Amino acid sequence: MYGAMKFSIGGPLKLAFRPWVEGIEHIPAEGPAILASNHLSFSDSFFLPAVLDRKVTFIAKAEYFTTPGVKGRMTAAFFKGVGQLPVDRSGARGAGEAAIRSGIEVLERGELFGIYPEGTRSPDGRLYRGKPGGLARVALATGAPVIPVAMIDTEKIQPPGKVVPKLMRPGIRIGEPLDFRRYQGMEHDRFVLRAVTDEVMYEIMKLSGQEYVDIYATAAKRQIAEAAKAEREALKAEKAADRQAAKSVAAAPEPTERDASGS
């Protein structure tokens, strides 16, 4: 099913958008490897597999497989067809452990495992701090090389909330594999996990040219949402004050002729 889906989706995708690729030679012809990518758009999970000859498996939200309706069924069929694995993210800790187990299983089969170390899409096109729990633990548990990947301009093709993509050329830069086997057996050392993750994020930053922000993308999204809420509330309060001022003016008594003459 994967081959048929890649042919039916990957071919037209490459023909329509003509993505450019640098460093494709860094993808091994066989054997396990972890593709660690920045995450700018929902379409990242389409473009990267489309340009590779090998199957790459990403972890996908379980909602993509369970959404009702025609669109939901089509989305589920696509993700199943390209080999994506559903993970229930309703419980953060349980979801993380499930993703790690799934990644290890993919790599133990000698396949490519794709992961977004930021944990979620960038809210503003900048590169955010990588989460150490997934990428580093999978890498140290399996000894698989980590290949940094930079998606370029995909956020311009399909920004969050936009359904219809804009036709333009995205880019993909693939870096040299990183070997972390020297840390094997230390996947529960939080300092080692942080060091491994930061090294990968540094390589992604060099490939992408993005500005790096040393906070998690989830925290940035929360800050942006809170700022937008505060702005809406301030605007609402300003409009209410204007309405109250208008009512006060309307309710004020008309000046009499005596008042106007001042006598």
Rank of each mutant, 00 (worst) to 15 (best):
M168S: 03
E199Y: 13
P145D: 02
L40A: 05
A136I: 06
I59H: 10
W20G: 10
I9V: 15
V146W: 01
F65G: 02
I34P: 00
P68G: 14
R258M: 14
Y128S: 07
F180H: 05
E25H: 08
V192T: 05
S263M: 13
S102V: 10
K61S: 06
M186S: 11
G31T: 04
Y116W: 09
E176I: 01
M1L: 14
E187K: 12
K61Y: 04
S37L: 11
M205E: 13
K131V: 03
G262P: 02
T120V: 02
G10E: 03
K166I: 02
A29P: 08
A230G: 06
A141H: 08
D124Y: 06
V149A: 02
R18V: 00
T154G: 00
K156A: 13
S102W: 07
F191C: 11
S43I: 07
A227K: 10
Q244A: 15
L135C: 12
A98L: 09
D198H: 14
G96D: 01
T120Q: 07
R109D: 08
G114S: 10
A250M: 08
R109G: 13
L107W: 00
P86A: 06
L193H: 06
V21Q: 03
T142E: 00
E233N: 07
A230M: 07
G31N: 04
H39D: 03
I147R: 05
R169H: 00
Q244L: 14
G114K: 01
R194Q: 15
D179V: 00
E254M: 15
N38H: 02
K71M: 14
V163Y: 13
T66Y: 05
A136F: 06
R126W: 07
V82E: 05
D153S: 12
A220S: 07
L85N: 09
K80W: 06
T197K: 06
A240K: 12
E155V: 12
E155M: 12
D44C: 05
R89E: 04
Y116A: 12
R232V: 02
P19W: 00
Y212M: 11
A36I: 06
Q223L: 13
Q223G: 12
E238G: 11
E187S: 13
A150I: 01
V149G: 02
A246L: 13
G72M: 08
L140N: 04
A95M: 10
G262L: 04
E97T: 12
G171Y: 00
P148M: 06
A50G: 00
L40G: 04
P132F: 09
L167R: 08
T218I: 09
A234E: 07
G83S: 05
M201C: 08
I9G: 09
I215M: 14
V70Y: 14
E108T: 12
M168K: 03
L107A: 10
T66E: 11
R54H: 09
S248G: 15
A245L: 13
A227L: 13
R182T: 14
V70A: 15
G143Q: 09
E211H: 14
I34M: 08
V146C: 02
M201A: 07
E176H: 01
F46R: 01
T142G: 02
F58R: 06
V56A: 10
P255V: 04
G69A: 09
G11K: 15
A227S: 12
I157Q: 03
M201Q: 02
S261L: 15
S208N: 08
R121E: 01
Q184S: 11
F113G: 05
P170W: 03
G72D: 04
K221V: 07
A36Y: 05
E105H: 08
I204G: 07
K221L: 13
